[in-house]
């Protein structure tokens, strides 16, 4: 079964995601155990990307629910199409329909707007990948609701009755740990912590995702990023920043790093004013010579 993990790594790499064996093992488990996958890690290490690759890998739809504080059932699950309902009511005035009949009509499936969670449950052609992004941003009340959906894969709409999942979706939850996820939700999931990539992995990611970057440039960027992350930064740049930076350098036609170039494009990787002030030209030059060594 070792091969399955290797096969998973290769398949993910075909879709542009460089996965180390631990990550591939957990993804393999999540797919075969059909358990939701809770992915934690610093911003920009590729948590959301993992769900996208999974969807591509399984050749299915990615349904994304972005969480935020105050997220409620109407945004996450379903909403009634009020304008349509009103229109229908107005048009059927005088048609002699009883209120009960009317209600039955306008609270039917045709008037229901499916939001991500409901869509993930009711999708007809095979299970989709449901990405619940930044679940730590939603509040505890929503987390409790999510827990209910994830344990039964069915939801109850008062006007319609219970809707059960035709296909149980593959679920990926991501968290930036702005608050701790509740134990009950954690217990439903397999856990994956994504770390900042090693030098070798980062270079491979660069080569896979930014084909315009030469081997030498990719390696220089990778080494610089490794050095940079070793510093006490208040906001650690992730792979997302590395990729942005590489694309910026490619579009500026730079094929090597020097202090001026790095300083000019620092905004791609450093997103904190204190960090930017710390990293003045001499500091950058020092980092560059360290990383070239």
């Amino acid at each position: 079964m070792k091969d399955e993990i290797r096969a998973m790594q290769e398949a993910m790499e075909r879709h542009g995601y460089i996965a180390e064996a631990p990550l591939a093992t957990v993804v393999h488990l999540a797919l075969s155990m059909r358990k939701p996958l809770l992915v934690e890690g610093d911003a920009g290490v590729g948590k959301t990307e993992l769900a996208k690759v999974l969807a591509a890998l399984l050749n299915t739809e990615l349904i994304r629910l972005q969480c935020y504080e105050g997220l409620d059932v109407a945004t996450a699950l379903y909403e009634w199409n009020y304008p349509r309902q009103l229109l229908h009511l107005k048009l059927s005035e005088g048609s002699g329909q009883s209120p009960a009949e009317l209600e039955h009509t306008i609270f039917g499936r045709d008037y229901l707007l499916e939001r991500p969670l409901l869509r993930a449950i009711t999708r007809k052609d095979g299970p989709p990948v449901l990405l619940v992004d930044e679940v730590d941003r939603a509040d505890d009340a929503f987390e409790a609701f999510l827990l209910e959906v994830l344990s039964d894969f069915q939801v109850t709409i008062p006007e319609l009755g219970t809707v059960k999942a035709g296909h149980v979706p593959y679920v990926v939850l991501t968290s930036n740990r702005t608050r701790e996820i509740g134990d009950a939700l954690r217990r439903r999931c397999l856990y994956l912590y994504v770390e900042h990539p090693s030098l070798e992995k980062e270079v491979r990611i660069l080569q896979a995702r930014v084909p315009g970057a030469s081997q030498a440039l990719a390696e220089a960027i990778g080494r610089f990023m490794q050095r940079l992350r070793a510093r006490p930064l208040s906001r650690m740049p992730g792979v997302a920043e590395t990729l942005d930076w590489a694309r910026a350098l490619v579009s500026l036609h730079r094929d090597r790093l020097d202090a001026d170039t790095v300083h000019a494009t620092l905004g791609c990787i450093i997103k904190d004013s204190a960090d930017a002030t710390d990293l003045d030209q001499p500091e950058i030059a020092a980092l560059l010579s360290e990383s070239a060594a």
Binding site: I5, A21, P22, T25, M33, L38, R186, L190, Y191
Partner: peptide, 20 residues
């Protein structure tokens, strides 16, 4: 779901399932 002889896979798998 894992090859029990692959010690690393067992380690990663159990670590994930134990939600460490």
């Amino acid at each position: 779901h894992l090859d029990l002889l692959n010690r690393d896979a067992v380690r990663w798998g159990v670590r994930s399932a134990f939600r460490v």
